[in-house]
């Protein structure tokens, strides 16, 4: 990796301090996931990152991705019902595929990844006391075997995402987990709807709609999902966002 180690160390410290700050505050779990995916890109030199959660119905759902392109690949992966992410989720173990061109494990997935310009993928499980609730996917555009250090950092980021889902240890843990998973998926739906509303009103691309939504949530110091909710229920005037 070209990043000088001291600079990366500093960036890592900054990222984890920010995460810790977020975790002790009243945070939006989807926004935290987006930040984590961004951290994977900037800290680990991956080209795209995506986070998938179980919907407890037997399906994994993409809840966050660093780019729309990664989103695409993951959706393909779900469609194909095969791939490193599903294997990672099912086995609770990291899955490494440094070169999909020579990897024979998931032919359909490899072809779809290639179509989207991705050559390598690493999947890291989100584990919570014996239960696997999702996986973090790291994509590279060129052949890449991630180092043990990089994988350790990636796993730590995945663990933070897991902690974020279950921030407090409630006595009704099972119910709590279900509530939190469903709430995260609902937030994701609301944000996608709000992106659609903005993209249509402003005749802008969906990722641009998302950027503006996120920037406004930050500048007005509100949760991304709360802002998205007011966009979808019509109580927020979107005109200022579309100028």
């Amino acid at each position: 990796m070209s990043t000088p180690s001291a600079a990366r160390e500093q960036a890592l410290v900054t990222a984890f301090v920010r995460l810790a700050d977020t975790l002790v505050a009243d945070y939006d779990v989807i926004e935290l996931f987006h930040g984590l995916c961004g951290d994977c890109v900037s800290l680990l030199g991956v080209d795209a990152a995506g986070l998938l959660l179980t919907d407890q119905r037997g399906t994994l759902q993409v809840v966050s991705a660093s780019t729309e392109a990664a989103n695409l690949v993951e959706l393909f992966q779900l469609q194909a019902e095969e791939g490193p992410c599903l294997d990672c989720f099912r086995t609770s173990a990291q899955i490494h595929a440094g070169d999909l061109a020579t990897d024979t494990r998931w032919p359909r997935f490899a072809r779809l990844a290639d179509d989207n310009g991705f050559t390598a993928v690493h999947a890291l499980p989100m584990r919570l006391r014996g239960e696997t609730i999702g996986a973090l996917n790291l994509f590279h555009r060129s052949r890449t075997d991630m180092s043990a250090d990089e994988l350790a950092i990636g796993q730590a980021l995945a663990d933070v995402a897991t902690i974020a889902i279950l921030s407090d240890r409630n006595t009704r843990e099972r119910e709590r987990l279900t509530e939190q998973l469903q709430a995260a998926l609902t937030s994701r739906v609301i944000i996608e709807q709000a992106k659609g509303v903005l993209a249509e009103r402003g005749q802008i691309p969906l990722d641009e709609a998302f950027s503006r939504l996120r920037a406004h949530a930050r500048s007005s110091q509100q949760r991304l999902s709360d802002l998205a909710r007011t966009v979808t229920d019509g109580s927020f005037d979107t005109a200022p966002l579309l100028r």
Binding site: N71, V197, L206
Partner: peptide
């Protein structure tokens, strides 16, 4: 699917 929800938002608008 994300696009179902994105499309829902677009139809809302």
């Amino acid at each position: 699917r994300a696009e179902v929800h994105q499309a829902t938002g677009m139809l809302m608008a």
